[in-house]
Design a protein around this nucleic acid. Structure first.
Length: 432
RNA sequence: UCCUCGGUAGCUCAACGGUAGAGCGUUCGGCUGUUAACCGAAAUGUUGGGGGUUCGAAUCCCUCCCGAGGAGCCA
């Protein structure tokens, strides 16, 4: 018996006898001939079943195998211009592994609520497969980028004690005799000590925010990659973020041609992601917005409309730096030229995909950090370990975080984050 | 948390005070090259729950539940 083949191999097997197994993606019959679009390993191929070439049992399978039935087929690979994809399999024998009736997701339109209820099945549709393939490539590219530059992967904890930046947005869970633990909303604080151990480090894992936000740009559980490097100054950080995005977009263009085509993504938008990115200081961004007619005042933070408005002026991501310190986190290094500003960086993606990177140089002076903790009313005893980094061989260092789903949404051109993660966790939904 | 819109067949929707319907899907039949095929037939309903108005409610009112879009916050 010939061994099982997978659909992507078929192009090199023209004229050969093969066995395939997978799911019925679509099916049509026309009297004495029928067609099944078979799916395996993310790819599909057309099976051609001719009445005179197969036995009665095989013909019955063609007639009755509903959408998403599991089938096995033997046949000959043939090149045929009439077939979608140019390659098809002339079937000699068809077997039903498991028959499916009334598969819920039909080839017609469905509402969001229905698709989300059936997310475990929705994953099988071509659009969702395409997005997941892009996500997979992005995740691999994230690791490759850091590895190629000598960064070590350091996993940060998911269960954490109280509060980096206030507990109101944290998921809480009981933790034996210690009261509550919280699901991590950033690995950064744990990465800074690791940067003293290994120099250049990054973490990449799930992150949790109990923020009651209900928009296309938010998930309760999302994946974040956070590099952190010792002796990296603010300028170095900006270059790193730029190189990172250019590298990732390049990898998607290089390896995701087919999924991008399925999604009808305008790849010229991705080809434009080349350095250097335009850089605006916060104050310049405010001026730009006011020129555009916004009533925003210096000192106010940008909302989604402002972000989109700023990026309309450019064809690539925009880096915004030097925010007022009051808008940013307690650990951000002040600008030496104007201590009311923070050495903070946000990168905003074009086409309305919003902020995808946020980062900063970190405060490395012990007394300054202590003062900031007090200003923010943070519990000092909980941060002693964090202050230790400034007590024992302190060092200039910087890092950023990137939300993977926002990046994938941007690459794939999908408007809602829920399609960029296999099982999205949103405010009102935790099933399936 | 706030604002807006919505909930009718498995799905997407129509009917908007007077007998609850269509397309798709499903089942059956037809067709030798289909691309979300096409043609014919059949089955499928506690109109989200509760209360009210009315001779009569899917339709109007109250209330609760659920969903979608947006805002704030953020990645």
């Amino acid at each position: 018996m010939t061994e099982w083949k997978s659909i992507p191999e078929l192009g090199g097997l023209i004229g050969q006898q093969v066995r395939l197994r997978g799911w019925v993606d679509g099916r049509r019959s026309s009297g004495r001939i029928g067609f099944i679009r078979l799916r395996d390993s993310g790819a599909t191929v057309q099976l051609v079943v001719s009445r005179k070439e197969v036995d009665d049992a095989s013909w019955e399978v063609l007639q009755h195998a509903g959408q998403e039935s599991t089938i096995a087929a033997s046949g000959t690979v043939a090149a045929d211009p009439r077939s979608p994809g140019g390659v098809e399999v002339q079937v000699s024998c068809l077997a039903l592994v498991h028959g499916t009736e009334a598969y819920p997701i039909t080839p017609k339109e469905h509402g969001t609520a229905f698709l989300m209820d059936n997310r475990h099945l929705w994953l099988r549709s071509s659009r969702q497969r395409a997005v997941l393939r892009i996500r997979s490539e992005v995740c691999h590219a994230i690791h490759d980028f850091h590895r190629e530059r000598g960064y070590y992967l350091v996993d940060s904890p998911i269960l954490t004690p109280a509060a980096c930046e206030g507990t109101s947005t944290l998921f809480e869970t009981p933790y034996f005799d210690h009261g509550s633990a919280f699901l991590s909303q950033s690995g950064q604080l744990y990465l800074e000590p690791a940067a003293a151990a290994l120099g250049k480090v990054y973490c990449f894992g799930p992150t949790f925010r109990a923020e009651k936000s209900k928009t296309r740009r938010h998930l309760m559980e999302f994946w974040m990659v956070e590099p952190e490097a010792a002796f990296l100054d603010f300028e170095g950080l900006c270059v790193l973020a730029e190189d990172f995005l250019v590298y990732l977009a390049g990898r998607v263009l290089e390896n995701c041609g087919e999924p991008l085509a399925i999604l009808e993504r305008d790849t010229s938008k991705l080809e434009a992601i080349q350095g250097p990115f335009p850089r605006l200081r916060y104050a310049e961004a405010i001026e730009l917005l006011r020129r555009q007619g916004s009533g925003i005042e210096f000192g106010e933070d940008f909302g989604a409309p402002e972000e989109t408005s700023i990026t309309r002026e450019f064809d690539r991501p925009v880096m915004i730096t030097h925010y007022p310190a009051s808008l940013k986190a307690f650990y951000m290094e002040p600008d030496p030229d104007d201590p009311s500003l923070a050495l903070a960086l946000d990168v905003i993606a074009p086409e309305g995909y919003g902020e995808i990177i946020g980062g900063s140089q970190r405060i490395h002076d012990h007394d300054l950090l202590l003062a900031r903790l007090k200003e923010h009313d943070l519990p000092l005893d909980a941060f002693q370990w964090y202050l230790d980094i400034r007590r024992y061989g302190t060092f200039e260092h910087s890092g950023f975080g990137m939300g993977v789903e926002r990046f994938v949404a941007w690459m794939a051109g999908v408007p809602h984050l829920r399609e960029t993660i296999p099982y999205p966790r949103t405010m009102d939904r935790i099933y399936p």
